[in-house]
Design a protein around this nucleic acid. Sequence first.
DNA 1: AGCACGCCGACT
DNA 2: GTCGGCGTGCTC
Length: 793
Amino acid sequence: MKYLNVFIQNNISRIDDLYTYMAHDEVDVEVGMRVQVPFGKGNRNKIGIVLSIEREKKSEYKIKEIIEVLDYKPIIDEDLIELGFWMKNKYLTKYNQSFAPLLPPGDIKTIQRIANIKSDYTFLDSEVEFAEELVKNKYNLKFVDSNENFKLIVKKLIREEVLTISFKVDTVGGTKSQKAIKLRKDYLNTMSESKIKLSEKQLIVIEYLQKKGTVLKSELLQNLKISDSPVKTLENKNLIETIDKEIERNPYENVDEFKINVLNEEQVKAFRGILNSNKKVSLLHGLTGSGKTEVYLKLAEEAIRKNEQVIVLVPEIGLTPQMIDRFKGRFGESVSVLHSKLSQGERYDQWQKVKNGEVSVVVGARSAVFAPFDNLKLIIIDEEHDSSYKFHNALRYDTIEVAKKRMEMESGKVVLGSATPDINSYYRAQEGEYDLFELKKRAVIGAKLPNVQIVDMRNELIKGNTSIFSESLRGLISEKLERREQIILFLNRRGFSNFVSCRACGHVIKCDNCDISMTYHKNTNMLRCHYCGSTKKMVTRCPECGSKFIKQFGVGTQKVEEEVKKIFPNAKVLRMDKDTTVKKKSYDEIYKRVKDREVDVLIGTQMLAKGLDFENVTLVGVIAADLSLYISDYRANETTFDLLTQVSGRAGRSSRGGDVVIQSYNPENYSIIYASNADYLNFYKRELEVRREFNYPPFSKLVNIYFSSEDNSKIENLANRVLFEIGREISGFKVEYTRLIQTPRIKNIYKYKFTLKVDPNFIDKLTDIIKGVLIKNRKEINKSNIYVDVEFV
DNA sequence: AGCACGCCGACT
DNA sequence: GTCGGCGTGCTC
């Protein structure tokens, strides 16, 4: 007997576990194959995936036997499963959280096994029945399941390398197919043997098919401008045949070819450097417009030449038509695109193509890091500083760490690219862990750097201007409108929180211990630090200058839109934010409208910061740089620097040069000043010092542990016990921790958290300790219906 | 989640 | 006795 540890997919945390089943030794089963098993008291049929196989019985439970093995070849490679276990351990997630992203999209039940038979193989007499069924079922092996003899034949043919398996995912409710026409193999014989005469139309059809091979019937009729009767006649004459062809739901059709440009000296240096680097990770630091994408394309081209495969990760928001067009245009059909706005069917198609080896490049958002390639040697992560790659509520892994791990397993390389690298990444490059390559020249010849000015909004208040536009921004807006040039007004609201600031002097109330802005809570009239939980009473006068202009800071896109319409009634204004941009379509539409100059002023949030290049935009106004400067997060300065640098780049796309106006109540803040000069290096140096002083990453690693439940009575006790037990275990290590703090209740779920700050070298040790404590309290946690989430920042 | 078990009251 | 309504607890 052998023992299979089976993962049965579900979202219910209480049964999220591996279940052990027996199988006889002679059963052919491998890790990654699907098995049918009896589950629960009623022995319901469930389909699970084998994640590991053991010789010995380890479990104390009464073990059931599997019903059937459903695959002849794993649907997930062993490497990916190993990666799943690694994630589970590193991030202390549920099985579902770590393994679901590795699974094919949709229900694993719907994966069909399609046989491909070597063309020169002649079936034996004993296999004729099988062969007939095979053709009848269009090579779908489903018919095999009920016949033991057929199963043996399949296995034998696989062993003899006559039969290979590819996977097909059916859309729920059946696949869409269309009628297609092709010439019968023996059409020439048929024609000469029966001396068939062809009419004019029939001849056209035959010629067309000779040229094109298999064609959709609808296409044929349309292109040749004929009715279907000649086609029918040809079919009756046994010259052509109709087959069902599946519609490929290709979301990106007719992309213009994108030729690779000749690389400049810097780009060549980076390309060669990355190729020859002996380090696992290379960091490509390139200014906006310096042509990082060209380097990516060249690297991908090189990999394809060697029959290797490549994953290119792009932030969801940066996965613009432009980016996709460049890869599609360069590599055509060998590129698959994965992102959150694909329909279920499109997703199936893309997975299938990757799994069956039909493509070599995947361009996609974070979860594409799990694309099921089997000879993956390169993962490129563009805009690597972007927060979408990091730990998320639902997506519990750090994309860069996972990419590094995957490439470590496959001995491949990771390339991180950014104009504003993550402080952590740049630090690692400085420390020699990564190789660093810089692109400093603008690749587009003639493009000028924009003229950036910072406006002190405190002076505007003194001058009596209480509007959201400074005189200078207002002046420039009207100037550009007159010249029929376009304007972007930007609100950097990412992670916006209710900080309190003084409009007279710019002072912001921060936590005394953490250097993080405090948040105003209206119901208690208190200020509070989201990191350590300490509170202060809300102030009525500024503790710095005594002014009473101290209050919650806030401005939204709607407000900006109203103001613009009031002051410039003739301007055509378009607002772009989460409310107005929900679908892929509307994003493309907004893009098109701006491109076609149907819009004078585009107002938006960080969605605007990336990927949108408009020639005619010559003014970017940042309404209040302070918005992102005071989010309750140690990365506030970095986020601000990144956003301001990127949005400023939007004005520098044309040869006319452009203007950028950054409005702020804290114009002396270093992230604003360095961003205005696009001076990454000095920003990095300064920010690193701040991080060192307050012991934030890269000098530490943060771990948040959340406890949530609908029932408030037990959480606090249990969370405090977990905190106490962890505290006891870590005495002797360099770990700081906050006390337990309650976070705002959302949808009737009470939530508490505490944060641990640990020396990065001890993170694995600390993870083990947390794991141990959670396992120890597991019964209690389950019984009280408390959810525990561990977040690594 | 989904199923069976078992405890209890109501009914034959 | 025994039927069924619903709370409880487990799933290899």
